[in-house]
Amino acid sequence: MNKWQDNKAWFMVIPVFLVVAVSAIIPLMTVVNYSLQDIFGPDQRVFVGLEWYKDALTDSRLHDALSRQLLFSSLVLLIEIPLGILIAMMMPKKGWSASLSLVLVALPLLIPWNVIGTIWIIFMRPDIGLLGAAINGMGIPFDHTAAPVSAWVTVMMMEVWHWTPLVVLLAYAGLQAIPEAYFQAARIDGASAWATFRYIQLPKMRGVLTIAILLRFMDSFLIYAEPFVLTGGGPGNSTTFLSIYLVKQAVGQFDLGPAAAFSIIYFLIVLLFCWLFYQALLKVGTGDKS
């Protein structure tokens, strides 16, 4: 019996196939199915073709949510990645202080998202919040329930506080993996601290930073909990990011068809950006041939 005739192999694949089918393929296909129909009730459905997709693509509120989302994710990456690298580089390399700082840095990652929301709402309250009251005390009006800028600043701080530690951990692992000899070689060459960072640490962290950027981009692009807990997308629509808008549509108005079409488009956008990032990051740092 050669391997082409042995059908037993299929039994080995079945468990994985079932798990993937139940957890990914079937739900995805259900969504695709929804997105092509107008659903009035469990038994009342009308096939509408690509109608919902056309609607979604021309929906100006969705466009607004998308631009808001892109701005938000870009800011998140611009802040979290450099900040994460900076903190990782300042952390002690060995001994008890290294373990201690790792635990301290990782703490925000261990706190459930709704608790984080509550903590920050109280922290930022203009009347009794430690930071909110302090900012107002300095004469700068700050109220995340009324002013869009305040709401943005608050969501951004929550996000940065919550997730920069992940970047720190990844960057720290990347830094620890660089053999000591590289730093010796740089010292012997007389390289400055900046040159050491630019030509040794940064290129050596490329792999982990690629992961960090992809993870942070995807995660921030799907942000829901923070703005939901804070203002539910307000004030106005100022923190209505894509997920918030999607949930408003699907759950709030129970428009399953448009929401499904929207989900598919959302999914494709995330996929597209991740692919673009990945392609770009593959080339960064290897193109220094000029």
Partner: peptide
């Protein structure tokens, strides 16, 4: 000048 057991070169430079 020093040469090491590991192959130490600047990774992003030709």
């Amino acid at each position: 000048a020093m040469v090491y057991q590991q192959f130490i070169n600047y990774p992003s430079m030709t």
